[in-house]
């Protein structure tokens, strides 16, 4: 019987359902608070995806949609970091998916009608599985900011969407990554749904000159924290950590 129950989700740290400045939440936010219930195997267990599902170019958005011999337009970057749990332990062997607009701020999607052009060499999606240290990395083009209909002059800061699986379905999370120094971060109503400034800072990738490759690409470091389990916390206490 599994005993590694996950730490209760801190709903004051996470965004509330209704955030009027982000207008799409008006009719899509439940009125009721979610019902608390003891974790069961249904939440403690989670789907597993082996390294064998990952193709050679799945984590290379510079090449994974480009025509042979061509590449997308834009700033070449690498994003890398670790998936950790709340006990700072690496989460190995879990699937990380990412998607984004192109350098002009346009998504390859039939519902995106923004003026900026599609890039014929950029699809905008990729995926990878973390290694034993919880580490992941991918190459891409820095996405552009773009305007969006929210009732005013609203612009999304440059961002990359992340979908994360942990070991248990209770850890499932979708979020977004922003770039250090972008002034649009602090103006965005979607970023603004996060109650605490420190929470927003958790989603801002840092320029990483150590991993930057001279004459090639700029690196950004981005760590992600998933729910941790209580039994690990107990072990930590026994070890005096």
């Amino acid at each position: 019987m599994a005993e590694n129950v996950y730490i209760e989700r801190d709903r004051d740290w996470q965004p509330p359902a209704l955030t009027p400045a982000y207008r799409s939440t008006t009719f899509r936010s439940p009125n009721h608070k979610p019902l608390r219930f003891d974790q069961t195997i249904s939440e403690i267990a989670g789907p597993t995806f082996g390294h064998d599902i990952i193709g050679e170019l799945d984590n290379d958005l510079i090449l994974n949609f480009a025509k042979p011999g061509e590449e997308p337009i834009g700033e070449r970057i690498m994003v890398h970091g670790r998936i950790l749990d709340q006990n700072a332990r690496p989460v190995p062997g879990v699937l990380v998916e990412f998607w984004q607009a192109n350098a002009g701020g346009r998504y390859r999607h039939k519902n995106d009608a923004y003026l900026a052009p599609l890039d014929p060499n950029f699809g905008g999606c990729g995926r990878t599985v973390t290694n034993a240290d919880g580490y992941f990395s991918f190459r891409t083009i820095r996405p552009g900011p773009y305007p969006w209909p929210n009732g005013g002059n609203d612009w999304r800061p440059a961002h990359i969407h992340f979908s994360l699986f942990g070991s248990g379905f209770a850890q499932r999370l979708i979020s977004q990554m922003y770039f250090e120094g972008d002034p649009l971060i602090w103006l965005c109503p979607i970023v603004g749904v996060i109650p605490d400034k420190k929470g927003i800072e958790q989603l801002i990738a840092r320029l990483d000159m150590d991993a930057t490759i001279p004459m090639d690409l700029i690196a950004y470091k981005f760590d992600i924290i998933l729910r941790g389990n209580n039994s690990t916390m107990f072990e930590n206490k026994l070890e005096g950590n």
Binding site: D10, Q14, L203, L226
Partner: peptide
Amino acid sequence: ILHESPSQTAGPYVHIG
């Protein structure tokens, strides 16, 4: 205990990823 990373909407183009 570290804070869980905050969630953000999957947005209207979740399909791409």
